[in-house]
C-alpha cells in the first residue's frame, strides 16, 4: 500500500483519472443537453463507436489529427440528424430506437474497420499539450495542464454548457421544451426545432467522445468503447441533469478506474480481488442513483414525443 501513497504515483493517478474521465464527460454533456430538451438517447455507445472509427480512419489516411477530430464531430452530428428524424419526425420510442442506433453503430464500425483497415494499424494520436506557465506549476501543473487538447475542451465545455442551458435564450427554450413542451409551443417556441438542435449537438459531442478515445489510444478495434456510452447516459442521471454534477460523476468514474489500474500495476490488488474492485464504479453508480432520484426530478417531458393539439 505504501507504494501507492507516494506523491508522484498519486499525482499520476489523478492525471490519469482526468484523462479517463474525458470521453465520459464529453458524451455525458451532450446527453445532458438532449435530455434537458426531453430527448433520451440510448444510442450514445453506437454513435461513439462511429465517431471513434471516423476519427481513426481520417487520421490514418491523412495523418491529420485535427481532421480526425472534425470527422468525429461530423459523424456524430450526422447520426444526430438520423436520430432526430427517427424520434422527432417519426416519433419512434426513444429507448428502443436508441438500442437500434447502438447495434447499428457497433456493427457498422466493426464492418468498416475490417474492410477498410483490417490489421491493427497504429496512428499518431493526440499528444499531451502542456499549457504555458500553468503547466509549470508544481503538482497542479502536472496533473491538470499536461493533458491532450480534448481534455481541455471537455472541461471547458462544462461551464459553457452550464451557461448555454441556464443563461441564454436558447437554453431557456431547451428547458421549457424539456419540462412543458405544450406551454413552450403555445409561446411560439418550436419544440421540434429546439430538439433537433440539441440532438445534433448532443450526438456530435458523442462522436467527439469516441474520437477522443480513438485518438488518445491511437488505434481502433471492434467495440472499442466497451460500454463507455451507456455509462455516460447513467452519468447524466448521476449528475442530476446539471453539467457540474455530470463532471463530478465523470471524475468519480475516471478516478476510480485510474486507481484500480494503479493498484493492479503496483501489485496492491491481485487476481480475484481485482474483480471486486472492478464492480465498485457500478455499485457506486446505483447507490448514487438511489440518492439522486429522491432529491431531484428528471425533465418532465423526457422520452415523450411532442404532439400538438389534443
Amino acid at each position: 500500500m505504501s507504494d501507492f501513497f507516494t506523491v508522484s504515483v498519486l499525482l499520476a493517478t489523478l492525471a490519469a483519472g482526468i484523462r479517463l474521465a474525458t470521453p465520459f464527460l464529453l458524451a455525458a454533456l451532450g446527453e445532458t443537453l438532449g435530455q434537458r430538451s426531453g430527448v433520451l438517447n440510448l444510442g450514445v455507445e453506437g454513435v461513439m463507436l462511429l465517431g471513434a472509427y471516423g476519427a481513426y480512419y481520417a487520421t490514418l489516411r491523412t495523418e491529420s489529427v485535427l481532421l480526425g477530430i472534425v470527422i468525429g464531430l461530423a459523424v456524430g452530428g450526422a447520426m444526430g440528424i438520423v436520430y432526430g428524424v427517427v424520434t422527432l419526425a417519426l416519433k419512434a420510442e426513444q429507448g428502443i430506437s436508441g438500442i437500434g442506433i447502438f447495434i447499428f453503430g457497433l456493427g457498422l464500425s466493426d464492418l468498416l474497420f475490417q474492410k477498410q483497415v483490417g490489421t491493427p494499424t497504429p496512428i499518431d494520436g493526440l499528444g499531451d499539450l502542456a499549457i504555458p506557465v500553468l503547466g509549470d506549476l508544481p503538482w497542479v501543473g502536472e496533473v491538470l495542464f499536461h493533458q491532450n487538447v480534448l481534455v481541455y475542451v471537455a472541461f471547458l465545455l462544462v461551464p459553457a454548457m452550464w451557461y448555454l442551458i441556464n443563461r441564454t435564450p436558447f437554453g431557456m427554450n431547451v428547458r421549457a421544451v424539456g419540462e412543458t413542451p405544450e406551454a413552450a409551443d403555445s409561446l411560439g417556441v418550436s419544440v421540434n426545432r429546439t430538439r433537433y438542435i440539441t440532438i445534433f449537438v448532443g450526438n456530435a459531442l458523442a462522436g467527439l467522445a469516441g474520437a477522443s478515445l480513438a485518438l488518445e489510444l491511437g488505434i481502433f478495434q471492434q467495440n472499442l468503447t466497451n460500454g463507455h456510452g451507456f455509462i455516460a447516459v447513467a452519468l447524466v442521471y448521476f449528475g442530476a441533469w446539471r453539467p457540474v454534477g455530470v463532471m463530478a460523476g465523470s471524475m468519480v468514474f475516471g478516478l476510480v478506474s485510474a486507481m484500480v489500474l494503479q493498484w493492479k500495476t503496483l501489485g496492491i490488488v491481485v487476481g480475484t480481488t481485482a474483480s471486486i474492485v472492478g464492480m465498485f464504479p457500478a455499485v457506486l453508480t446505483i447507490l448514487v442513483l438511489v440518492l439522486v432520484s429522491r432529491r431531484t426530478g428528471s425533465p418532465s417531458a423526457l422520452t415523450r414525443p411532442f404532439e400538438r393539439g389534443h
Binding site: 453506437g46 438520423v82 427517427v86 417519426l90 416519433k91 419512434a92 420510442e93 428502443i96 430506437s97 438500442i99 437500434g100 442506433i101 447502438f102 447495434i103 447499428f104 453503430g105 457497433l106 456493427g107 457498422l108 466493426d110 464492418l111 475490417q114 474492410k115 471492434q222 414525443p305 404532439e307
Partner: peptide, 26 residues
C-alpha cells in the same frame, strides 16, 4: 464480407420498425 454487416442491418431494422410503427400508431 464481415458478419458485422448483419449486426449493422439489425440495428437499422430496429430503428425502421420502431419508426414506422409509431408513425402508423398516430
Amino acid at each position: 464480407v464481415p458478419a458485422a454487416l448483419i449486426l449493422a442491418l439489425n440495428g437499422l431494422v430496429v430503428v425502421f420498425v420502431v419508426g414506422s410503427m409509431q408513425a402508423r400508431a398516430r
